[in-house]
Every structure is written in structure tokens, then in C-alpha cells.
Design a protein around this nucleic acid. Structure first.
Lengths: 151, 151
DNA sequence: GGTAATATCTGCATGAAAGCAGAGAATGTT
DNA sequence: AACATTCTCTGCTTTCATGCAGATATTACC
């Protein structure tokens, strides 16, 4: 791979990441949630129900703070507490589908604009992007883990 | 473009974005900054000096809150206030290079892991990714603007 | 030159998020 | 059956980012 290509990527990529994060912050603020709360909803939506403790690990919060986080989300009807039948100390938390309406509205502009970006891609480009996202996602999660361990 | 391709992208992409945002949050926390503060540094680094008011517009904060944001960053030596010679009401803010050492360390894991992801791409894939990032960045910024207007 | 508009800063107040330490409930371990 | 461990929750406290409204300084307009 030629050097100019990599240089261009190196210039573009940080700005891109910055924009993604800022969009996340703006979204959270628009729906009246903290950024961590918004992430938690995402995690619950994408990965399904999990225990309070698992959510604490994912968010990097203490278990106490996580209880409060779940309280907040439950009060807004975005999330539901379900007792774990197998271990009654545990609480399973699951996202309430259909209740994230305003969140959906807030994400609409991004969906629209990025939809346009993707729509003008060739199938080969879509394939390349999909593969990248698939590989980058675990990379970010590993980096998160490394960051937290280093603290 | 075939439907299965788009479905796969639709499944992967939200998780990817979630991971990026979470990484941003974890990074901010690791260096002891708020998420907004971290974004501000990025904006100043990538776009160069700007006035306090411009920074307020970019972050979505009031000018008062932005003054405090600059105070915080200045106290840590990450940012510098420079009087605008053309208009002495204004204050230009610029990132202090070389001072973001711990931030660099915190970003190191992501750089490494994502570097590996990019390194195993063909030149064509790199080109597709770079082009995507270039087009997605303004799309996100437009979406941010739309979100804030809708509020 | 005098008044209005603009840009940043300050004081004050508030709300919200998170940590910590201990309580309560359930499970496992010997 | 007793004890230790695990999981979530609660009370309390602290920290901190942010808004708001007014103060101050500078520039623009008439």
C-alpha cells in the first residue's frame, strides 16, 4: 500500500471518529439521557438481556452506580427489570422495544444522511465497509478494556 | 446491491457506532476529562484555532459554559488563549501541541488494534474506507445540526 | 460622539452522575 | 447447619458540568 494513501487515511480517520462521538453526545443530550445511559440502551438492545453486574462491567461503572442507571432507564420505560429465575440474587435487565420512539426520531437525521452515503456505494465497497465494521468493533472493545486496565 | 448485503450492514453498523462512542467515553474518563472537553480538544487540534464563540457553537454549550470549558483545558495546559488582534472582544483558543501526552498514551491501544485492521486491507479497500470516512464525517455533522435544531 | 450590538467572563445556583461503604437477600461450600 | 461469598440495592457525600443572568470590554452604526 502506498504511503500517500495511508497518510490520507490518517488525516481523515481521527476527524471521522470525533464526529461519531460528538454525534453520540448530541443524541444523548437531545433525548435527555447521559452518554453512558445511551450506551447502555444500545448494549441491551444489541446484545439482549444481561445482569446488572454485566452491565456494570460493560459501562465501567460500579454496581451501585449501575443500579441508579437502571433506575433512570426504567423510570423512562426504556428498560425492564426481570428477576433471574436461576439465581434470585441477580436482576436481568432488558430493553423495552417500542419505547425508544424519541430516540428513533433523534437518530433519523443520521440514518438518512448516512443512508445516502451508503446508497451510492458499489456492492464491493459495501462489502469492504461491512467487513471493516465487523473487525473494528471488537478492536474498539479490546482497546476499551486495555484503557481501563491501564488506569 | 443485494438485500442480504444491506441487512448485514444494518446489523453490524449500529454496534460499531456504539463501540466507537463507548471508546470515546472511556478515553475521556481515563484522562480525567469530560466527554465534551475531549471533543473540544479534538476540534481544536483538527480545525486549528477558533474563537470561544465558535467552540460554543460546535459543542452546543452556552458561551458561559464554554468559558469554563476553556478554563479547565487551559489549566491542564492542553489549550491556550490568544487575544484576537483583529477584534479584541474575541478570544482565540488553540490546542497546545506536545501537551497531550497522556491522551496519546490512552489512544495507543486503539491505534494499535485498528492499525492492525487497516494493515490487512488491500489498497482498494483502504481507498473505499477512506472515501467513506470522508463522506460520513460531514454527514454526521449535518445530523448533529439537525438534532440540535429539532430540540 | 452616543447608542446599540456583540463577545467573553463572572457569580450564583442547580441538577445530575458517580463513588463508597454497608445492608439485605440468595447461593455455595464444608 | 453454619459460614463465607456473591449480587444488587440504599444512604450519604462529593464532584463537576452546565445554565442563567448580569457585568465588562470592545466594536459597529447612525
Amino acid at each position: 500500500m502506498s504511503r500517500p494513501d495511508l497518510e490520507r487515511l490518517g488525516a481523515v480517520y481521527p476527524r471521522y471518529l470525533n464526529a461519531v462521538v460528538l454525534h453520540g453526545l448530541a443524541t444523548a443530550q437531545a433525548v435527555g439521557l447521559g452518554a453512558t445511559d445511551l450506551y447502555a440502551i444500545g448494549a441491551l438492545t444489541f446484545e439482549g438481556r444481561m445482569t446488572s453486574g454485566e452491565l456494570a462491567a460493560k459501562t465501567g461503572l460500579t454496581t451501585g452506580a449501575t443500579t441508579r442507571l437502571i433506575d433512570r432507564l426504567e423510570q423512562r420505560g426504556l428498560v425492564r427489570r426481570v428477576p433471574d429465575p436461576a439465581d434470585r440474587r441477580r436482576v436481568l435487565v432488558e430493553a423495552v422495544e417500542d419505547e425508544a420512539v424519541d430516540l428513533d426520531d433523534t437518530l433519523a437525521p443520521a440514518r438518512e444522511k448516512l443512508g445516502a452515503v451508503f446508497a451510492s456505494c458499489s456492492p464491493e465497497q459495501i462489502a469492504a465497509l461491512t467487513e471493516h465494521f465487523e473487525r473494528a468493533t471488537p478492536a474498539f472493545h479490546e482497546a476499551i478494556e486495555a484503557i481501563r486496565k491501564a488506569e
